[in-house]
Simulated scan of single mutants.
Amino acid sequence: MGLELLLPVMILALIALMFFQSSKQRKAMKDLQEMQASLAVGDQVLTTSGLHATVVSVAEESLVLEIAPGVRTQWDRRVIREKLDPGTSPGSAAGTDGAGS
């Protein structure tokens, strides 16, 4: 009699896990879209391709990014993966400060 209940309980557990995972994913997507919508001139950003840049101008669907002094390119807003802290500069990832060398 216990085995007859095992399959329905396992199915319900699987459905619950799928629901919780999808709600986490929706929240992460919403947070990403809010960050992309809040981008402003002067923000330091990282694109999905790993490019560090500074936002120079903002349009409804696109951004102009300065990737080097005087080098500006136009990008879709959706390629921005994260907004970097003002103190973070390209190439200053943790562990690359040259200490110990």
Results as ranks from 00 to 15, higher is better:
Met35Gly: 10
Leu46Val: 11
Leu6Asn: 12
Leu14Met: 12
Gly98Arg: 05
Thr48Trp: 00
Thr48Ala: 11
Leu84Val: 01
His52Met: 00
Thr48Ser: 12
Phe19Leu: 15
Lys30Gln: 10
Phe20Lys: 10
Pro90Lys: 05
Thr88Asn: 00
Gly50Lys: 02
Ser92Ala: 05
Pro69Trp: 02
Ala93Gln: 00
Leu7Val: 12
Ala93His: 02
Pro86Gly: 05
Arg26Lys: 12
Ala53Leu: 05
Ser23Asp: 12
Ser22Val: 15
Val71Lys: 06
Val56Asn: 13
Ala13Ser: 14
Val9Cys: 09
Val9Ser: 11
Asp31Pro: 00
Ala53Asn: 06
Leu65Tyr: 03
Ser49Tyr: 01
Val9Asp: 11
Arg81Ala: 10
Leu3Ala: 10
Pro90Phe: 06
Leu84Met: 05
Val79Gly: 02
Ser22Lys: 15
Ala40Gln: 13
Glu4Ser: 15
Ile67Met: 09
Leu17Thr: 11
Ala28Tyr: 01
Thr48Asp: 13
Glu60Asp: 01
Gly87Met: 02
Thr88Ser: 02
Ser101Ala: 14
Val45Ala: 04
Glu82Tyr: 02
Gly100Leu: 08
Phe20Ile: 08
Ile67Phe: 01
Ser57Tyr: 08
Gly95Leu: 06
Ala16Gln: 14
Ser62Thr: 13
Val45Asn: 00
Leu14Asp: 09
Glu4Ile: 14
Gln36Arg: 15
Glu82Thr: 11
Lys27Glu: 12
Met1Trp: 08
Val55Gln: 07
Gly2Trp: 11
Met1Leu: 08
Val71Met: 05
Val56Ser: 15
Ala40Gly: 09
Ile80Leu: 03
Leu65Lys: 00
Arg72Val: 09
Ser101Leu: 15
Glu60Pro: 03
Gln36Val: 10
Gln44Glu: 00
Pro69Leu: 10
Val55Gly: 06
Asp31Leu: 13
Leu51Pro: 02
Asp76Arg: 06
Gln33Phe: 07
Thr73Lys: 09
Thr54Gly: 03
Gly98Ile: 07
Val45Phe: 04
Gly100Cys: 04
His52Val: 03
Gln74Val: 11
Glu4Gly: 15
Ser92Asn: 01
Leu32Cys: 06
Ser57Gln: 14
Leu84Tyr: 04
Thr47Arg: 00
Val58Met: 10
Leu14His: 10
Gln44Pro: 00
Ile11Lys: 14
